[in-house]
Nucleic acid binder design. Structure first.
Length: 673
DNA sequence: GTATTTCCTG
DNA sequence: CAGGAAATAC
């Protein structure tokens, strides 16, 4: 039950690197219908069932059926990402054929048996042909059969048998060809999306760059070796197959003059095939510690492949600057975010000097400033009554107050997903190559408007926002995954592969998932709506492709926001009741329990919902918070808090206080650009 | 039954 | 903040 497959259980479309960046022309079309698929209580992401057509089978080495939300998802891959349906159909077809020889979809309890059977067939056919070639390998079974046939001396029958097997072989060949073709087509799509590889790059690769390629192949092969059973049969087959494939791969690649990505993609697939071809028999699988090693290797494979792809694309990017936006890997899906600052007439920017008006803060022990990038007094006292334009914005540079220093300032929020830390690191690493000069200079005077506008959305690095959070969360998941999934002994499968729902799928081609930017936006929305309906959410997150998973995610966010809100309210109400200080404001003349903008509570709320402080907290929200505070306070004072349901009345009150969210939130992306 | 919410935990 | 369970709403 702790098989590595569990660790993949929530990932979506891992295999989707082949559709890394969806065609912009098709990325946003097609209304989506929701796919009903089980779920229910306690399953916030019932629809988060991934579709990983190619590695789906790989992920179930023991034939364990994949479960999600307590339901089996065997017969049909969840097609939640309908937009990818076409692509997936192709991939599925290919995956199915690669694994299940007969092109059938392997599923259910029969999976293991089918799998083994099919793979045995492949092996036998393969061995047969090898046998004919140089007689190097033979199976007893085969020899016996031959013997029997010879003895029977029934030529017709023999012919029949051979005919049958030849047909089988040819069928197999055809299927392989087809699979290959499909793979190629997919890869071409990818490259189309990536843009043409420059000719000189290609030349370099095949002259001076060859070595690099070799290294990669070698490295990868090394990686896969442990999974090849030591039996000479398998070793021989694997070696020869690999050689043949490598050769074929290269000549084909040369013919196509495509690029390294093809090698990478094909490599990953082919090595996966090697694993399967060599390790599918259960005994072997177990004998070689298949699960762990497989998981580890798969992780490394995917990680390194993705890293290399990214590196290459980015290298390409720097070499070819400026790229037409259409082929920029990060702008393929039109980024609404880049237009925000111009597109939001309702949003006025705060004067720059606001942030210089740092007043000393009360050093409340409860306040933690985890982010070292934040200034020592990260919170401007928003008590000036003059700045009540709302909503109000800080200048764009504020976006980077808490992001990585080497990111250009106007780079805010592409809708990159809540990438896992590992993925973020990949990006960070790659991007640090790109913008080495930006290091240590958050404000980048040398980044001219033109250069930034030629890649207005380039650094996708809203990703970096909340890195600290995710970093902390990583360990978190480590523990949890270790405890719940890996039993704490998962040798290679740390949470490096763990990705929250919608994250990697988004990145690898989902296209419209939730990003840190959306989280930010949701938090700001909370100032207006504590209980947004899913329709409201759909209205205000137009760039999000809503499916059940995403909807619950957003709803869950608001639930979390409320939770935090209520906790703070209660806490401060109790504190006020305890301290006999009903006046939270500094000025004694203030009405009781006023939430002044210079108060600790205000500070905490602002910090939570408006961390980068690029938004003016609406007066309305302050009022609501005050009201909630008073409700809590009086409930506590009057002893109503002993009633187990005492909070519910307050929730009801708060529930009615939602106000219209400003129209600026209807625009895609972050309302603060 | 499903969707949503709260509560709890990590 | 996410995940899960339980309760509740529809």
């Amino acid at each position: 039950m702790d098989s590595p497959s569990d660790l993949f259980g929530r990932q979506s479309s891992l295999i989707s690197p082949f559709v890394l960046y969806p065609d912009p022309s098709t990325a946003l079309d097609l209304p989506r219908h929701l796919t009903p698929s089980g779920g229910g209580h306690g399953a916030p992401y019932p629809g988060a069932n991934p579709s990983y057509p190619l590695i789906h089978h790989l992920l179930q080495p023991g034939g364990a059926p994949m479960r999600s939300g307590g339901e089996l998802h065997l017969d049909r891959y969840n097609m939640e990402e309908e937009g990818m349906e076409e692509e997936e159909e192709e991939e599925e077809g290919m995956g199915g054929r690669l694994v299940g020889v007969g092109g059938k979809r392997l599923s259910g309890d029969a999976l293991e048996a089918d799998w083994s059977y099919d793979m045995m067939r492949v092996k036998r056919l393969r061995l047969e042909s090898l046998d004919k070639g140089d007689g190097e390998i033979g199976l007893e079974e085969e020899e016996e059969e031959e013997e029997k046939r010879r003895r029977s001396a029934e030529r017709g029958n023999r012919e029949k048998g051979r005919e049958g097997r030849r047909r089988e072989r040819e069928e197999l060949k055809e299927q392989l060809e087809e699979a290959r073709g499909r793979l190629k087509a997919l890869q071409e799509k990818v490259w189309k999306a990536f843009g043409e590889r420059p000719a000189q790059e290609e030349e370099k690769r095949w002259t001076g760059g060859e070595q690099e390629e070799d290294e990669e192949v070698g490295e990868i092969d090394d990686l896969s070796l442990p999974f090849i059973p030591s039996s000479p049969h398998f070793q021989g087959i694997a070696r020869r197959d690999r050689k043949a494939r490598d050769h074929e791969k290269r000549s084909e690649e040369q013919r196509n003059a495509n690029g390294g990505g093809e090698v990478l993609l094909e490599g990953v697939l082919e090595r996966a095939a090697v694993w399967m071809g060599c390790g599918v028999v259960r005994g072997e699988w177990e004998r070689f510690g298949g699960e762990q090693k497989f998981a580890q290797a798969l992780k490394q494979e995917l990680g390194s492949a993705v890293a290399r792809v990214i590196d290459r694309v980015l290298r390409l990017y720097t070499q070819n600057e400026p790229l037409p936006p259409s082929i920029h890997p990060f702008t393929l899906a039109p980024s609404p975010y880049q237009e925000q600052s111009e597109a939001l007439p309702l949003i006025t920017r705060r004067p720059d000097n606001r942030r210089n008006h740092l007043l000393p803060l009360n050093n409340h022990p409860n306040i933690r400033t985890k982010n070292p990038l934040l200034p020592p007094h990260p919170f401007p006292p928003l008590c000036q009554p003059h700045h009540h334009t709302h909503p109000a914005l800080l200048p764009p540079s504020s976006c980077h107050k808490d992001s990585s220093p080497f990111l250009p300032p106007s780079s805010c929020p592409l809708p990159l997903p809540l990438l896992h830390y590992t993925m973020q690191q990949l990006f960070t690493r790659s991007l640090s190559h790109l913008h080495p000069l930006h290091k240590g200079n958050p404000f980048l005077p040398h980044l001219t408007p033109s250069s930034s506008s030629s890649h207005p959305s380039f650094p996708p690095l809203a990703v970096m926002e909340g890195l600290d959070r995710l970093d902390g969360g990583l360990q978190h998941h480590h523990e949890r995954d270790g405890g719940m999934r890996g039993g704490g002994r998962d040798g290679g499968m740390d949470s490096g592969m763990y990705l929250g729902p919608g994250s990697i799928s988004f990145f690898f081609g989902g296209g419209e998932g939730l990003s840190p930017c959306h989280l930010k936006k949701a938090k700001l929305m909370f100032f207006y709506a504590r209980y947004p309906s899913s329709n409201t959410l759909k209205t205000y997150f137009p760039d999000v492709k809503f499916n059940r998973c995403v909807t619950s995610q957003l709803i869950k966010w608001f639930s979390n926001f409320r939770e935090f809100f209520y906790i703070q309210m209660e806490r401060f109400a109790r504190q006020a009741a305890r301290d006999g200080a009903p006046c939270l404001g500094r000025e004694g003349r203030e009405p009781p329990l006023r939430l002044g903008r210079d108060t600790e509570l205000y500070r905490i709320l602002n910090m939570h919902y408006n961390k980068s402080n690029d938004y003016q907290v609406p007066d309305r929200f302050v009022e609501i918070a005050e009201l909630a505070l008073r409700e809590f306070y009086t409930a506590i004072q009057t002893g109503r808090d002993s009633d187990p349901c005492w909070k519910k009345s307050i929730y009801k009150i708060v529930c009615k206080l939602d106000s219209p969210v400003p129209d600026s939130f209807r625009l895609p992306g972050c309302p603060m650009g």
